[in-house]
Design a protein around this nucleic acid. Structure first.
Lengths: 245, 245
DNA sequence: CGTCTTCTTGAAGAAGGTCAATCCTCGTGG
DNA sequence: CCACGAGGATTGACCTTCTTCAAGAAGACG
């Protein structure tokens, strides 16, 4: 997906969910002056743990992982970045995690210093950034429950349920009910890293869910959930604490 | 620990780290008008998942856990709240998690509506809240690495290392080096819930670390780390991505 | 001094990891 | 058009780690 570098924010697919969501026309004009688009191919690094990160970027299109790799090679993905999610933060010049494009990724970005100035001077930016960060914090804590206490089967189910919910938001549909088709933006290996499992266990549990009729697997990167509520029951979580993301 | 309800913010132990840290004298006076202190005994619930939460509270003294319990009783702690940490958020009337006092806890709190007004009208509050939330998000993501990829032994080591670091911050000392004494604010069960382990595995790994000379255990709630760096090496993380909290 | 709670230790079992072989699927080139 | 090869995915066999179930020790407290 290519975007015209000077295209209007009005046509931006993440206009109403990204860090600019609360901005008015005047503020958007200020942003447009200093924003720039950049596209990365699948597999490209968008940031590296411990390295400098000079921009604050919002994902416009595509999908990326945020992860850390331990000295001996064990990797844990700590966030799956989808359109409207951001990379970087005001007040810090290095990234604590690796960020890697899963598919071709287009970002809308600001030079760090300039963005810090925006956060200081435009309350609509600061306010939206706070809301998004609080939401991300809740999501990260929800994910800790998945990583710490769920079985392999439940982890797979929880991941598919959360992915279906996020795709619904991105495509501006209602929350998933009944039968849902899902495209997986990750390989089995990336899923395993996200779930704290091995690739073999991930594969086996997908097969098990398929044999139990809870999912169909028409292609390696395609999942059909015939009954969303039934799959959600497999997570062991009654969901009263908020949406898992 | 009891605090005078009308005591001056100037003498507050979390004055320079809490959500009010960036406020000037004039702003503190505004806060003082609407703040109230409340103390909870050990074991008391400060919030319940799915229930309404009418205040934004900062922990002044004591320690609490933030957790979720699955339908079948499995529990995962998603955050260990220490002085200066906050409970609640602007724009949301219910808590996504249970919050429970581990020791006697004193909080400084604001009625939710009043706090939302503060966030809107005092940029120093909004800015500090954003910084704290971004830090919490990094910490939650760091913890995901512990939960998802570390062994039981590494989890215990990572927890003790992170606790030592946080205690140093709270007591306004330098970061831990060499020999460090540590008071555990949690029971073995609470530690297990935090680490995604059983209480038995937690106990066994503490014993193993003791037998290996990496820690001493003078009391059930007391740990001495004779060589902080040696224990940090047991976490398998080289720490280049930021402090684990 | 008993009783309750918390912690520790032991033995057995299960879940998931490791190692290894095989299978797709798709792109390439003969 | 079809054989070949490479990368990812699946499956199988075995093994390690952690959990489960059970019993006992150590404090804390009336």
């Amino acid at each position: 997906m290519k975007l015209d570098p000077i295209s209007s924010c009005a046509a931006c697919p993440i206009r109403h969910r990204a860090v600019c969501a609360e901005c008015d026309a005047r503020e958007l004009a200020l942003l447009a002056e200093i924003k720039s688009y950049r596209t990365f191919p699948a597999g490209a690094p968008l940031a590296a743990a411990g390295e400098s990160l000079d921009h604050f970027s919002s994902i416009v299109a595509g999908c990326a992982t945020m992860s850390r790799t331990l000295e001996d090679g064990r990797r844990q993905t700590v966030g799956l970045l989808m359109p409207s999610d951001y990379i970087g933060r005001p007040g810090r010049a290095t990234s604590p995690f690796d960020v890697e494009a899963l598919s071709e990724v287009t970002v809308c970005r600001f030079e760090r210093r300039a963005f810090e100035k925006l956060v200081r001077e435009l309350p609509h930016i600061a306010s939206r950034l706070l809301t998004m960060t609080l939401d991300e914090l809740d999501a990260a804590r929800d994910w800790a429950v998945v990583l710490g206490r769920m079985t392999a089967r439940e982890k797979i189910a929880a991941f598919l349920v959360s992915l279906a919910r996020r795709q619904a938001v991105i495509e501006e549909r209602d929350g998933p009910v009944g039968a849902v088709a899902l495209h997986l933006p990750l390989s089995r290996e990336a899923m395993a890293d996200h779930l704290g499992l091995t690739i073999e266990t991930t594969s086996r549990q997908i097969t098990a869910l398929r044999k139990d009729g809870l999912i169909e697997v028409p292609g390696k990167r395609e999942i059909v959930i015939p009954d969303f509520e039934a799959l959600a029951l497999e997570t062991g979580d009654d969901g009263d604490g908020g949406v898992i993301a």
